[in-house]
Simulated assay, not measured.
Amino acid sequence: MQAERLLLIIEDDAAFARTLSKSFERRGYRVLLASSLDEATAVLRQHNPAYAVVDLKLNGNTSGLTCVQMLHKHDPEMLIVVLTGYASINTAVEAIKLGAVQYLAKPANTDDIEAAFGHVAGIEPVELTNRATSIKTLEWERIHEVLVQTDFNISETARRLGMHRRTLARKLEKQRIK
């Protein structure tokens, strides 16, 4: 496998990381996974990826921006794309300043991310696919957002979403990936 096709994904949502990983592997990338800054640092001791995808919000109050800074310091030539479900202009600007080549709001698919890797120093505009987001995806993202806000308290999340706790539990059980 060519070194330039080595990709590091730093994502604390294991299901999303696996899905993204499989999609990139089908495109010929060799994928390394990390769910935290410490795991990413350990991966970099043994590998030198040319690409990285970093989630902006990681568990344990770790910002993906810290990971971007560390990755850029490790290899200034690495192409880093930041993904977030909580997009803001401030974090987008900061991510680019720290070394990311692009900042994408979730849900971003593999086409979007791969196009973003080609967006180096503003040379080419990134064309996002014109796909519609399904209602199920939007619902899941909203549930996940409120879960994070409530520190994964099911009862409080259900209350904030205006649904019964058991209904929320069933929806979460359906989303579980084995």
Rank of each mutant, 00 (worst) to 15 (best):
E25V: 04
R5I: 01
A40Y: 11
A108M: 10
Q175H: 08
L6C: 06
K106A: 12
A50T: 04
K136H: 07
S134M: 03
R18K: 11
G85R: 10
V120L: 09
L104E: 02
C67M: 05
V43A: 15
A92R: 07
N59D: 12
L32V: 13
F16H: 03
S88E: 08
I80H: 01
E156R: 13
V68Y: 12
Y29E: 07
Q102C: 02
I9A: 12
I89R: 01
S35N: 12
H74E: 11
A92Y: 08
I89D: 03
D112T: 06
G99C: 09
N90K: 14
T133V: 11
Q102R: 10
S36D: 04
V54N: 04
V54I: 15
L56K: 07
N130Y: 06
E77V: 12
F117K: 02
H144P: 00
L7Q: 03
E127Y: 15
E4S: 04
W140D: 13
W140R: 15
E4T: 10
V126P: 00
V82T: 04
P107W: 14
E94C: 08
V81S: 03
L33G: 03
T133L: 15
R165I: 13
R26L: 07
M70N: 04
Q149L: 12
R142E: 05
R166F: 08
E124R: 10
L44Y: 00
T19H: 03
V93D: 08
T91W: 14
H74V: 07
Q2V: 12
E139C: 10
I113S: 09
T41E: 10
A92I: 04
R45D: 12
S88W: 05
H72D: 07
R176I: 02
H144G: 00
E77S: 10
E11Y: 10
M70K: 14
Q69E: 11
R170V: 03
L104V: 13
C67G: 08
G85Q: 13
I96M: 10
I143H: 01
E39T: 02
A87Y: 01
P125D: 10
R159F: 03
Q175S: 09
R159Q: 07
H74Y: 07
E145R: 07
I143A: 00
R45C: 02
K57S: 01
R5E: 09
G28C: 05
R27G: 06
N48P: 00
I89T: 14
R159K: 12
E39Q: 12
T110V: 11
E124C: 05
R142V: 00
D112R: 06
T62G: 00
D111A: 02
